[in-house]
Each structure stands twice: as structure tokens, then as C-alpha cells.
Design a binder for these strands. Structure first.
Lengths: 410, 410
DNA sequence: CGCGATTGTTAAGTTACTTGACATTCTTTC
DNA sequence: GAAAGAATGTCAAGTAACTTAACAATCGCG
């Protein structure tokens, strides 16, 4: 009398017909050292014969190839991996102040990457042509033609309306509201574009290739100019009803705290974001605090990254500011842990590059202020992919798009 | 060039073989006024012929029956509904101070219900035999034999380890930690038991039959002695890694607030839970505040329900306390809205029975302190099923278990 | 070398579907 | 009131994705 304890069966969104083919493809993709047909059959719950047929299709379509397998007691298993020669993809991470491009093959091996400054406040009519031009000149330089690119993932720092391929009501992207970003880019580049939130893509990147590989319930926190979170439930991005799930940056921490860009008071972002850290430093210097930061020519232009650099070199004020940010972040994460009960929290973004100086107070406060059952289950680590998390998530999504489209056709 | 924008295909947990049969069954279950074969074929993406075969199986197995359909231009469609004569189920809601039993058929029509007092602090060795005895005498009184019950859903106020059928580290259930609740009950009753969290089941109940019918992303808040939340994503309960997702009661609201039963300070539960409301009332009366509550014989035994009742009759102190609770709850919900971006929040539990007196401040604060994109998407309402939300969720889960087990066998 | 162990393949049968024709039953129209 | 049109439901034949069961390939080991 074994209880099932399932809830409700779902009507699958895609065709049920090739479900196992797609599932096999993903198992092959996310097995770093290859996977054999028999392992596939175990994971999928199919017979070896069925897997032979499915893999045969995938190989014939040029999506998968055989490599050297592991030895065991009996016949040596043949390892399967994605065929990297199938095509190329690009991941683009558009941040508030920077844009990052990553060119990769279907195995997610990075071929090249570049970064450039960009001001997202200038709006889509300025930024998108700029991104388009950068892409073209960069690819030309590498000797790669746009027609070789089979899909492009683009991350932006705002809530995504997936079906429409645009952002809606973004707190830090004035002028982008409801602009048809995906349509514009697909027209410019002539290939499928998948639009995503930068924190979501960060989560996806770390889940696929980084600090949260294969983890069930993953949260990625991007601490940059602002603060955002990406939620991943069993490898699926959770966006919520209007695409703004994970907006942890605008969670209230101090009821009467400093004013935030969103209009409220005491938001996490206004207390622990990069902009807040920089402004706190400037204010402290003006108030006469001793710090190595005051040696800089212009005090007004001190950025969060300057504070981070100084903290690393042992500057007391900077270290104090970073730890303070960690304290606030830990408080917010404690609430997130109680609500979402994640397996892992990965902290990335520019500010996170200080490492344990930020993470230690985060871990301490998060543990202290959350329920024991929940805090014991979660590990809080820093991002493995560093500044590339989001771009790699965009790459993962682009590869996903390409592979599954090809698998459907075959 | 239509972009897919899916993420990753999942390996389905149950057998893929009968997936459409199960999906059809659920579509029939959750269509209040029946559904025709042709509507099923549209929803499932199958042909009419295939649906004929599937429905034929379900009818032959006695799970589904035909009723009168709607007229249209052409041939009258035959409406399908679950066959209520297939069997009976029971939903049990074990709360901190009460236990509720609901007997229902497969159409979730309530046949009878009873409620009794119970002190969960007495532990499983006392409570479970008591629940067992109550079930037996109640069923005997109704002339129903235990063997007629095909499944029983049981809700308890603690984090669930689904596979094991027990609770782990429950904040308000000392002595129950890791006790094999499901095993004990299955042995006692001789039928499959599905164990769930009371807030989860509340969410399920309101999603299936109440204020959140069919809603994509639903949050149910149970404001009773404590405060808990149940999260439903597309009809699926989200439990998190260790089953304690939605523990909103222990989210920090005031850093140096009153001590909570969980050991932390300033938890939502310690500020807005039923216990907190009652204690605040007692303290105010002792301090000399004028209130109708002081007419009661014993001040120390004033409960949250007394305060609720007084507030409804216009008592000023009681109304103030309820509104205060609403204010705190609204703050917590604002954070939940930013993180989870739900479509609907349903507020239930004993304290919620005051209605708008609590809901108005909740709505106001929640809207004010959350992002516009998120707050515009969500509606906050009170539970339709009232005190029965959780028990009806347990019924829904029990029916689910029975139907899908029978469908698998047929 | 031969043997068991393990992996992969092949051919025949099964199942859940689709396709396309047909039957049924309603409303509308002449 | 019969015919036409429209929608729903069913049937029979074919197909794709599986399973079953036998067999082939390849390894380590005595």
C-alpha cells in the first residue's frame, strides 16, 4: 500500500510525442562527462531498445555524438555528448551600465567574449542599435557570420513578459516599458532570440555550469547596482504571474529607511545595492571619516567597485560598508529562505566579488533569522562564473532553444 | 520565426504512458459544470477519436459518467463528470487546537462533517488514537464502513517530508518530529493516507473549490493561532527542499520585536497571530483600557476568537488590534508579492473571519510596499470555504489519489 | 581460451495515438 | 416538414513510439 502523494497531472505544453527525445537530449546536455545509453534508459525509465532508437535519431540529426566511455566489468559503455559542431550561439547580458557578449558552441564552450559600457537609461532606440552594431563588428572580427548563429539569448534587468518578448514596468529601465525588444532583435539578427531577466539567466547559468549544478531549488542573487533574484525550480525558471518574481531588491527591510528609486522607503536595494554602498562611502568621506578612498581625485565619482577594491586591500571604512550590506542582505535572505526553502543560494554580481567579506555576515544573519529546518537545508555560496553568470545563462537558454527546435524537426 | 522560449523538458515522474488519461481525468474533475469530449480534445491537443477511446476507458472503469450537455448549433454535446458513486473519501484537518473531519464523494460533495477540540501539544501517541477513535465512531454513526473509504487526506500544521509521510522540525508540534504519521494512520485505517501541511491543503482547497479556482499562482494564508502560507504553482503544491516553503509566520517584521515561539524576535506570528492578538488584548485590559472584553468572567482566558467577536460587534480596542494585525500581515505580504508574484492571495483561518476589518489594512499596506507590476497583478480576498479550506484541500488530495490510482489500473 | 557480466542492437508485437470516413443529433431554412 | 448545414461522437485502418525477447559485441578474469 504505497501512497502516491502526487498532486495533479499537468497537461504538457509541448507535444507529448517527442517528450522522451527532449528529455534524453537534456540528460545528455547536463552530464558533464557524457552519459551512456544504459544510464539514459535508467533515468528515463525506458528500455535499452527504446533509447537506442531515440539516440539514433539524435545522432542522425547531428545533435549528438559518441565519445570514449568508461570501462567497467563488461562491455565498455559508449559515452554520448552534444555535438559541438552543430552550430554556434551567443549570450548577451545587458546590465544597467555594461553589456557582455559570449560566443559559445553547443557544448557551451566559450569561444570568445567581450564587454562594453552602455547606459540603459538611454532607452531601447539608442541601446539596441548599439548592441546590434557591437555584435556585428565583434563577429566580423572573429570571422564568424551571423548566419552561423542558430540562437541568441539576451538578458535584461527587468521583469519579462515571455510571450511578448518585452519588459513590463521595469524599475530601472525607463523608456523600455513594453518596447518589443525580442521582435526588434530577431528582425536585426535574423535568428531566434530568447529574452530573459538577468537574474533569471544568472540562476540558469550557475545551475547549468556553475555553483548550483543540477540543484533542485536554486536562488541566484545578483548584487550589482541594484539587487535582483532569479528563482529556479527543478531547472525551470519561475517568473510568477507578470514576470517579476524574485524582485528581492524592493523588499522592505527598514520601515523608515532611505528612499529607493522605486518610490518606497527602506528597500534592500537602497540599503545594500551598489549605488547605496557608493553613496554611503561618499557621505562618510564628506563627514571626515579616514579612508584610503579619499586619496582619489574626485570623491563624487567613487563607485561601488572602488569601495569593493578598497575593502579587499584592507580599507576599514570600505570593509565596514560591505559588511553592513551583508547584514541587510542576510536579513532579506532569511525571509526568502523561510518562504522559498531553497537548496542553494548563489550570490553573484559585481559587489559579490569581494567574496567572504560579504558572505560571512550574510550567512550568519540568514541562518540566525530563519527557521532551523529551512536554514539547515540551504548552502549560501558565491557565483563560480563570476561576472559571466548571466551571459552563460543566456547561452544555456539559446542552446536549449536551438537543440530542441532541431530535435523537434528530426 | 516563432520563438519557443521554453526552458528545459522534464523527465516526467509518473509513467508517460497514461499521461493523457490522467490529464483528461483532471480536466473533467475541475470543470464544475461538466466538459464534453470535444472540449477535452481541444484542451489536450488530441483528436476526437483519441478522446473517445480515453473517455471510454474511464467510463468502463466507473470513474466518469455522462450527463446532460449544453445545446449549441449542431448535435448536443454530452457532458462528462466524475462518477460520484465510485467511492468515498475523508479529509482531516488537524490544527493546533481543533480537528475537523469532512466526508465527501468523488465529486467533492460534502456528505457530513464534524469538529472536535484537540491539543496538538499532547503528541502523536495521544492525538492519533484520539483521531482514529473519532473517525470510527463518526463513520459508524453515519452508517459508513471504513472499507468504503478509498483514501484519506490528513493536514497537519508542520513542514512535511512527503516521501516519508512525517513532519520534520515543526515549530508548533513538539513530539511529532519524525513520527511516522502516515504509516500509523494507514495501518489503523487500512487505506491510503496522504499527509499534507494544513496551509498547503488550504491553498489546494481554495484552488479546487473556492476563491482561487484554477488560478495560476495561488498563495493561501492561514491566520489562526499561528500564521502559515501554502503556495500553489499551476495547481502543484510547492513544498521547497525540506517541505517548509511558505513559512511566512516566521518572517522577521520588527528587528527587536516580541519574542516568538521559534526563538527569534519580531516574527510575523508573534505580532499578528491569534495568540499575539489575544495576549495584546489581555495586556491592554490589565493596563486599564476600556473595552467590552473586560466584562468577561476571566480575563486570562480571553482568546483570539473572543477578540474577533468583539471587533465585529464594534468594540474599539478589538478593532484596533485586528487592524494592527492587518498592518503587519500586509507588510509581510508585500515582501511575498515581490518575491513570488502571485495571481491571487486568499486569506483564511480563524482570525480571517472578521473579513474586511482585517483585509482593508492588509490590502492597503501590501499594495503600498510592493512593486507596482506585482501589486497590480494580485487580488487579495478572503477564503470562500471558511474554516473548511484545509479539510477540503485534504478531500481534493484524497480524491486525486483515488481517481488516479484507479485510472492507472484500468 | 572460455565464461560471466554488461552494453548495445534487432525484429516482432503492443499501445496510444492520427487520419479520414461515417453516423448521430441538433438548429436553421426553404 | 423535409432538406441543408453544423457540430459532436464513433469506427476502421494506419503509424509512431514504445516493450519484449532474443541475439551480438566487448570487456575482465580465471
Amino acid at each position: 500500500m504505497r501512497s502516491l502523494d502526487t498532486t495533479f497531472w499537468q497537461v504538457p505544453k509541448a507535444s507529448v510525442k517527442n517528450l522522451n527525445k527532449h528529455a534524453a537530449l537534456d540528460l545528455i546536455r547536463f552530464s558533464p562527462s557524457g552519459i551512456s545509453r544504459i544510464e539514459l534508459s535508467r533515468e528515463l525509465g525506458l528500455t535499452r531498445a527504446a533509447v537506442t532508437a531515440i539516440v539514433g535519431d539524435l545522432i542522425k540529426a547531428g545533435l549528438v555524438r559518441e565519445t570514449n566511455g568508461q570501462s567497467s566489468r563488461g562491455r565498455r559503455a559508449i559515452a554520448l555528448e552534444i555535438n559541438p559542431q552543430g552550430g554556434l550561439v551567443v549570450g548577451v547580458d545587458i546590465g544597467a551600465t555594461h553589456v557582455t557578449f559570449v560566443l559559445a558552441d553547443y557544448l557551451a564552450h566559450v569561444i570568445d567574449e567581450i564587454e562594453a559600457s552602455l547606459d540603459i537609461f538611454e532607452g531601447p532606440q539608442v541601446c539596441l542599435p548599439f548592441v546590434d552594431q557591437m555584435m556585428r563588428s565583434w563577429l566580423e572580427q572573429l570571422g564568424v557570420k551571423l548566419s552561423q548563429i542558430t540562437a541568441i539569448g539576451v538578458g535584461v534587468p527587468g521583469p519579462i513578459v515571455t510571450d511578448a518578448g518585452m519588459v513590463s514596468g521595469p524599475p530601472i529601465m525607463p523608456g523600455w516599458d513594453l518596447f518589443p525588444i525580442r521582435e526588434w532583435l530577431e528582425k536585426a539578427w535574423g535568428c531566434p532570440v530568447t529574452l530573459g531577466n538577468d537574474a533569471e539567466f544568472g540562476a540558469l547559468g550557475e545551475w547549468a555550469f556553475g555553483a548550483g549544478r543540477g540543484v533542485d531549488n536554486l536562488v541566484y542573487i545578483k548584487v550589482g547596482t541594484g539587487i535582483g533574484a532569479g528563482l529556479l525550480i527543478e531547472g525551470q525558471i519561475y517568473r510568477g504571474t507578470t514576470g517579476c518574481a524574485g524582485e528581492i531588491g524592493h523588499v522592505t527591510i527598514e520601515e523608515d529607511g532611505p528612499l529607493c528609486t522605486c518610490g518606497n522607503r527602506g528597500c534592500l536595494e537602497a540599503l545594500a545595492g551598489g549605488r547605496a554602498i557608493a553613496q554611503k562611502a561618499i557621505r562618510a568621506i564628506k563627514a571626515g571619516t579616514r579612508t584610503t578612498l579619499s586619496e582619489r581625485p574626485s570623491i563624487e565619482t567613487i563607485s561601488a567597485m572602488d569601495v569593493i577594491a578598497a575593502a579587499r586591500k584592507g580599507d576599514h571604512l570600505s570593509q565596514k560598508l560591505v559588511q553592513e550590506a551583508g547584514y541587510y542582505l542576510g536579513t532579506a535572505l532569511a525571509n526568502l529562505i523561510n518562504l522559498f526553502n531553497p537548496t542553494r543560494i548563489v550570490i553573484g554580481g559585481g559587489v559579490a566579488q569581494v567574496g567572504d567579506l560579504l558572505l560571512e555576515p550574510v550567512r550568519k544573519v540568514a541562518k540566525q533569522r530563519s527557521l532551523k529546518v529551512a536554514s539547515q537545508a540551504v548552502t549560501i555560496t558565491s557565483a563560480v562564473l563570476g561576472r559571466r553568470s548571466s551571459a552563460m545563462g543566456a547561452v544555456a537558454q539559446a542552446i536549449s532553444l536551438s537543440l530542441h527546435q532541431l530535435a523537434e524537426a528530426s
